[in-house]
């Protein structure tokens, strides 16, 4: 059992590192653009990766309390992506 849980801990830290790297890549895309669509896409990706980081923290600490935070970030991510895209499309969010 200790061998299995050691392997799980190692995998968890590896997964956290890789999500952080992916988050950093999305941040670079947000920085260099070049178009508005790319920046919206990078923000959407960062929202999704943030959910991943929170879920991994929940597994690492063995708690359920991060579930609501992950759900709220998922909803905010969708709403903000749609709002940005609508602003680009129509120059207004709610007409």
């Amino acid at each position: 059992m200790t061998q299995a849980s050691d392997f799980l801990t190692l995998t968890l830290y590896g997964a956290l590192t890789l999500v952080a790297i992916a988050q950093f890549m999305a941040m670079i895309r947000l920085w260099i653009g070049p178009g508005t669509g790319d920046r919206i896409l990078a923000l959407d990706t960062m929202f999704i990766n943030a959910i991943g980081i929170i879920v991994l923290l929940g597994i690492l600490q063995g708690t359920q309390i991060y579930f609501e935070a992950a759900l709220i970030i998922a909803m905010l991510g969708f709403v903000s992506t749609v709002a940005y895209a609508r602003f680009v499309l129509r120059g207004d969010i709610i007409e």
Partner: peptide, 12 residues
């Protein structure tokens, strides 16, 4: 959201 971003790309 992917559809919305694609439409934003077409618009730009």
């Amino acid at each position: 959201s992917a559809n919305f971003m694609a439409k934003a790309n077409i618009h730009r």
